[in-house]
Design a protein around this nucleic acid. Structure first.
Length: 271
DNA sequence: CTTTGCACCTGTTGGC
DNA sequence: TGCCAACAGGTGCAAA
């Protein structure tokens, strides 16, 4: 479910309720997430004040004086703030009980998400240290993308979804960005010129910015930190619109598979 | 090093 | 109406 806009929406929803609060207890109901929830997470957070809630790629970082909790929502995860005594459902795997009488609850039916702990600020963690730039930062520009694409035979869609190149571009927004840039998703990355590279960078920034402003995309079960759904779905240009008319030219949108992921594009607008 | 395909897991959907 | 295969927002890792 969550791509970068959803994670950022979640961060903005929960940060005001967590920042400066102390964690009274950590309840692990199901430790079998993508990796086992480590005892160090419980030990590190319990009794500790959360100093800041940050985001790097699709990870949420809860910063404390003792170390940093890393949370990832995988495909189906969500975080909500609830009253601490709210009964837990089947997929409510983790609670951070706060000194406010509320708790931050991680729900994740497919358990592809993660809750990890690291000493330090988290950026040195093996999962984060090799990541590419944030898509909305100045570090992600045409120079960077053009260099990353040079000599690559990989489909451009797969390349922009590679977190070593740029983080936060998931399956929905990859299709959306390529439509905006007028680039065929299966074009070899190395065969895209400088000018179209610039267009693609701008398209990615635009799509992600719009989606964050709309509070993310709701497909099935996404809810932000405040429990409200996002509204970007109604603005999707190609994703999930197989056979429906292109909003620009009316040609039916096509669906193909690229790198084992569904890909949507307009055969007329994208070359 | 690059590219491909799989694995993890549960719930929903669409076609017969 | 009911069943079951196909598919779903991510991403690390093994194998080619």
């Amino acid at each position: 479910m969550p791509e970068l806009p959803e994670v950022e929406t979640t961060r903005r929803g929960i940060a005001p309720h967590l920042t400066g609060r102390r964690v009274r207890a950590v309840v692990v109901r199901e430790p079998r997430l993508r990796w086992p929830v480590p005892a160090a997470l419980v030990e590190g957070l319990t009794g500790t004040r959360i100093e800041a809630v940050e985001r790097r790629a699709k990870y949420l970082l809860l910063r404390t004086a003792r170390g940093t909790a890393l949370l990832h929502l995988g495909m189906s995860g969500s975080l909500r703030l609830l009253k601490a005594d709210t009964p837990a459902g089947k997929h409510d795997h983790l609670d951070l009980v706060l000194d406010t009488g509320h708790c931050l609850r991680l729900t994740d039916p497919r358990r592809f998400g993660a809750a990890l702990w690291c000493e330090g600020d988290g950026h040195d963690h093996a999962l984060l240290s090799g990541l590419g730039p944030e898509p909305l930062s100045d570090a992600f520009d045409a120079d960077h993308l053009h260099t990353a694409m040079h000599g690559r035979k990989l489909a451009v869609k797969a390349l922009i979804m590679d977190a070593h190149v740029v983080v936060g571009v998931g399956n929905i927004y990859a299709s959306e960005s390529l439509f905006l840039a007028g680039i065929h998703p299966q074009r070899a990355a190395g065969r895209i010129g400088r000018a179209r590279c610039e267009r693609l960078v701008q398209a990615i920034k635009q799509v992600l910015t719009e989606a964050i402003a709309a509070g993310g995309t709701t497909l099935r079960d996404f809810v932000g930190g405040d429990g409200k759904p996002g509204y970007f779905a109604q603005e999707l240009r190609v994703y999930g619109r197989t056979g429906e008319p292109c909003r620009a030219c009316g040609t039916p949108i096509r669906q193909i598979t690229t790198g084992q992921r569904s890909t949507y594009y307009c055969p007329r607008c994208q070359r």
